[in-house]
Design a protein around this nucleic acid. Structure first.
Length: 492
RNA sequence: GGCGGCGUAGCCAAGUGGCUAAGGCAGUGGUCUGCAAAACCAUUAUUCAUCGGUUCGACUCCGAUCGCCGCCUCCA
C-alpha cells in the first residue's frame, strides 16, 4: 500500500474535478444503480458494469476498503408490462433476468458487488423512509399514491443543474390530478388489479422507482456515503429525485461524489431499447473475447461517449493480441552470463516508471485510456529490448524485464485485462478460430510435413502450391527457425 | 425552447497556457524469409472544426459561427 497521493474525481453535482477524500479514512462506500430486470443486458449495461468494476478495483488496489452496493430493480412498470405479455409473474420474470445478468457479468469477468439488494426485499425500508418524508411534509398521500412535494425541497434541481420553472416550461408531463405540482413524483403507487401489491399505511400498492435506491443506500451505506454512480441518463430524474428523497428524509448530506459515465452509441446515436439499436452482451461475447470488449471500453474515458462497431472491436482485438504476445515473448528470453548487453538508461527508466505513470493517469478521474497508453508504451519498449537481445539478457536485466511484465499484468488486471496466461490465451485463440475452418489440424500438419520435405529439396513450386492450398482453407503458414507453424486467417 | 457535452492525423483516442501534441488500428519503409506470412522495429498531425479576442506565447482561456450528440419522458 502506497502513501496515497490525491485522487481527483469529476463530481456531477458541481461539474468540477475534486480531490477525493473518503468520509472515513481508508474506507469507501459506493452505490451504483443497477439494472431493471426485464430483458437481457446490452452493451450499454456492460459499460456501466465494467466502468464501476474498474473503479472499485482501482480503489481497492490503492488500499481502500470498499463496500460496493449495486441494486436490482425488480418491480416497476416495464416489468409488470413484460410479465403480463409473457403471462408470467413479475417475480419469475425478474429472477430470470437477474440470473441472466449474473451470467453476463461472469462472462465479462465482472466481480459481483458486495451487496446486490432488490427493491422487493426492502419494501419495509421504503415504507419507513416514505413515512419520514410525510412527517417532514416533503411528501403527501393522494388517492392511494404518495408523492414527493418538490416545491418543499429548496435544492431540487441542483444535481442536474436545472430549476423547477425551467423544467415546467419544456416539460412533457402526463396530467395527473392527484399531484399538487406537475413535477411531483411518485414514492408509492396504488396498485391496479393484477399487479404485485404490498400493504402500506396508504393502502395496497408498490414502491415508485426512485425511492428504492434511497432506502437501500441508506440501509447499507448510511445516510451519507462517498460515491454514487450510474449512467448519465440517470442524472435526471432518477438521481435528482433520490437526492431529494434522501436528504429530505435524513436532513443530512447524501452522496458526496456523483459519478456518471457516458453512453455507448452506435453510429453516434445512443444505444437504447426504444431505438432498437442495441446489441446484447451475449451477442457480442459470441464473437469476441470479453477482454476485447474491455479493452475497447477502457480505451476511452468513462465520461465520453463510446461508439460501438465491429471494426472498433476488431481493432481492440489486435491490440489485445499485441499485449499478450509481448508477455509471451518475455518468457522466451534466454538468460545469459554475458555482461556486454545492457539496456539503455532511458528504457530502464521507462520500465521502472510504469506503475508511477499508470497511477498518475488513474488518479486523474480514472483515466483508463491514458493508463492503457502508458502500458502500450512500455510494451513497445519491452518488445524492442527483446528484439535487440534475442541471444539473451544478463540476469539483472532479465529480472527487470520480467518483473515489468508482471507489473503490466497486475495493473491491467485492474481493468480486467491480461487475466489469462499469455500462452493459454494465444493457444485458445487459435483453437477458437479453427472452429470456423473446414480442415482438420491433422490434415494441416500432414500438408506442412509434405511441404517441409519439398522445401528441403528446394522444390519451391511444390512448396508454394501447398501453401496456397492451405490458404484457400484460411490457413496461414509461418516459417520460423524452429520449423513451420500455422495460424488461422482473420475472417473479414 | 431550456440545460449540458463534443469537434485533435485515414479511423479510434489521450493530453497541455510555452519542453518532441500519448497510445491503439490502418498505411508506408525495414529486419526476418527461397519468396511470403506472422511477429518486431522505424515512420506517419508545423497542427488540434472555423473566425475573432486576451496573452510575450493558445490547440489549451474568452466570445461568436458552423457541425454532431445527449438530457429535459422510461433508459446504463
Amino acid at each position: 500500500m502506497q502513501t496515497t497521493p490525491e485522487t481527483r474525481v469529476y463530481n456531477t453535482i458541481n461539474g468540477k474535478k475534486e480531490t477525493f477524500s473518503p468520509l472515513e479514512p481508508g474506507r469507501i462506500g459506493i452505490y451504483v444503480c443497477g439494472i431493471t430486470a426485464y430483458d437481457y443486458c446490452h452493451i450499454g449495461h456492460a459499460r456501466s458494469a465494467l466502468v464501476f468494476d474498474m473503479i472499485v478495483k482501482y480503489l481497492r488496489y490503492r488500499g481502500f476498503q470498499v463496500k460496493y452496493v449495486r441494486n436490482f430493480t425488480d418491480i416497476d412498470d416495464k416489468i409488470i408490462k413484460r410479465a403480463n405479455e409473457r403471462n408470467t409473474s413479475c417475480e419469475v420474470l425478474s429472477d430470470e433476468f437477474i440470473r441472466a445478468f449474473h451470467e453476463d457479468m461472469a462472462a465479462l469477468g465482472v466481480a459481483p458487488a458486495d451487496i446486490e439488494p432488490k427493491a422487493t426485499e426492502h419494501v419495509d425500508d421504503i415504507i419507513s423512509i416514505i413515512k419520514d418524508l410525510i412527517q417532514r411534509e416533503l411528501a403527501y398521500p393522494a388517492g392511494g399514491d404518495v408523492y414527493f412535494r418538490v416545491t418543499r425541497f429548496k435544492e431540487y434541481g441542483t444535481l442536474s443543474g436545472r430549476d423547477l420553472d425551467e423544467m415546467q416550461a419544456g416539460a412533457r408531463i402526463e396530467v395527473n390530478e392527484n399531484k399538487e405540482h406537475p413535477m411531483d413524483f411518485a414514492l408509492w403507487k396504488a396498485s391496479k388489479p393484477g399487479e404485485p401489491t404490498w400493504e402500506s399505511p396508504w393502502g395496497p400498492g408498490r414502491p415508485g422507482w426512485h425511492i428504492e435506491c434511497s432506502a437501500m443506500s441508506r440501509k447499507y451505506l448510511g445516510d451519507t456515503f462517498d460515491f454514487h454512480g450510474g449512467g448519465k441518463d440517470l442524472i435526471f430524474p432518477h438521481h435528482e429525485n433520490e437526492l431529494a428523497q434522501s436528504v429530505g428524509a435524513s436532513g443530512k448530506p447524501f452522496a458526496r461524489y456523483w459519478l456518471h459515465h457516458g453512453f455507448v452509441t452506435i453510429k453516434d446515436e445512443k444505444m437504447s431499447k426504444s431505438l432498437g439499436n442495441f446489441l446484447t452482451i451475449r451477442e457480442v461475447l459470441e464473437r469476441f473475447h470479453p477482454e476485447v470488449l474491455r479493452l475497447l471500453v477502457f480505451s476511452s474515458h468513462y465520461r465520453s461517449p463510446l461508439d460501438y462497431s465491429e471494426a472498433a472491436l476488431d481493432d481492440a482485438a489486435t491490440g489485445l493480441d499485441r499485449l499478450y504476445q509481448c508477455l509471451a515473448a518475455i518468457k522466451g528470453i534466454p538468460k545469459t552470463k554475458a555482461t556486454e548487453t545492457t539496456i539503455a538508461q532511458s528504457d530502464r527508466e521507462r520500465l521502472e516508471g510504469l506503475e508511477g505513470r499508470f497511477n498518475e493517469a488513474m488518479r486523474d478521474d480514472f483515466n483508463s485510456a491514458r493508463a492503457l497508453g502508458i502500458i502500450f508504451e512500455v510494451v513497445k519498449t519491452i518488445n524492442r529490448i527483446v528484439q535487440e537481445n534475442k541471444d539473451g539478457l544478463p540476469p539483472q536485466y532479465l529480472d527487470l524485464v520480467s518483473s515489468t511484465g508482471k507489473k503490466i499484468t497486475e495493473l491491467a488486471t485492474i481493468m480486467g485485462l491480461l487475466t489469462q496466461e499469455p500462452d493459454e490465451y494465444l493457444r485458445r485463440k487459435r483453437e477458437e478460430m479453427l472452429t470456423g475452418i473446414d480442415i482438420s489440424a491433422e490434415k494441416i500438419e500432414n500438408l506442412i510435413r509434405e511441404r517441409t520435405e519439398a522445401r528441403a529439396l528446394k522444390d519451391w513450386s511444390r512448396s508454394d502450391a501447398i501453401r496456397d492450398q492451405l490458404l484457400e482453407h484460411g490457413i496461414i503458414l509461418k516459417d520460423g527457425p524452429e520449423g513451420t507453424s500455422w495460424s488461422v486467417k482473420k475472417q473479414t
